[in-house]
Write a protein that binds this DNA or RNA. Structure first.
Lengths: 145, 145
DNA sequence: AAATAATATATGTATATACATATATCGATT
DNA sequence: AATCGATATATGTATATACATATATTATTT
């Protein structure tokens, strides 16, 4: 007897999210190509820019990314000179991450490229549906936390 | 002058999808833990089960995954004895992938674990909203292809 | 103040992913 | 049949990701 309905798992939230994420990442990366950034680094650099002097752990909390992954991904940004990583004088365990001028330039350069990709998605879905979509992503995130 | 509205990129479809995907993957993985499969392998094994004698490239097309990634991920399944990979007699370039009895058992074992994770998402969102969500993921996928 | 618990980051290891390119095979053209 | 283009898979390399654990530092407890 092995008549379990495997086919039902086609509706898997995780599998469907992973597939769409693979696909959309390549899409955004095509636009970002000229900047030399790719989606994950663009996102990381953006959040560093929006949260000056943020720590590794706090970045992880915002991005829902393991702290060890943050540690490794900011190394790449540092290697390219886009961020500085310094010990917090008030707490030597902590490191504070800041965007450099070069990093801010790179981010500014990639914004219009990002905007091109983004507008295709938003226009394709329509404003309202896009808003609902972001809300659903947020709700899923809270369901699984 | 650097007053570009970086903050607008918080609505990035790619970034938001990637974040939610990281998060939900860990959620499903917790449930699947007992089976020894993790989300990507569960998904891969499922699709192999649903498409007997599928090729590497066809799997990539279904999963929107690069062919080289499929090649490497099925190696893991093969190493665990969950699939067989044999040359297509009709076309020696092609390889056909099939689930083994052991793989089918493993999949059957993981289905109720998957169902637990899945039902929390579907119940949390509600049936209708969940259906809309899958539709939107599909539409995004088509927008970026 | 010393010992212990808690916290922040880093390292070792493994999987997931894709791009550029190589290799093998097939199909079509001559 | 030999050549050439197309197709299927594999390999080299690099980034993305997380878990288990180590290390360093701070905070708490005795």
């Amino acid at each position: 007897m092995s008549c379990s309905d495997l086919s039902g798992a086609r509706r898997c939230a995780c599998g469907n999210l992973r597939r769409t994420t693979r696909s959309i990442t390549q899409f955004y990366d095509q636009f970002l190509l000229k900047s030399g950034l790719r989606s994950p680094q663009f996102s990381l650099l953006l959040n560093i820019s929006l949260n000056e002097n943020i720590s590794v752990g706090e970045l992880g909390s915002i991005l829902l990314m393991d702290q060890t992954t943050v540690t490794r991904n900011i190394e790449m940004l540092k290697k390219n000179g886009y961020v500085t990583i310094i010990k917090d004088p008030a707490d030597a365990r902590r490191k504070t991450i800041s965007i450099t001028e070069s990093g801010a330039d790179k981010l500014a350069e990639s914004m219009p490229l990002w905007e091109q990709a983004q507008s295709q998605i938003e226009k394709g879905l329509g404003t309202e549906r896009y808003r609902d979509f972001l809300k659903t992503l947020k709700d899923i995130t809270q369901l699984v936390q």
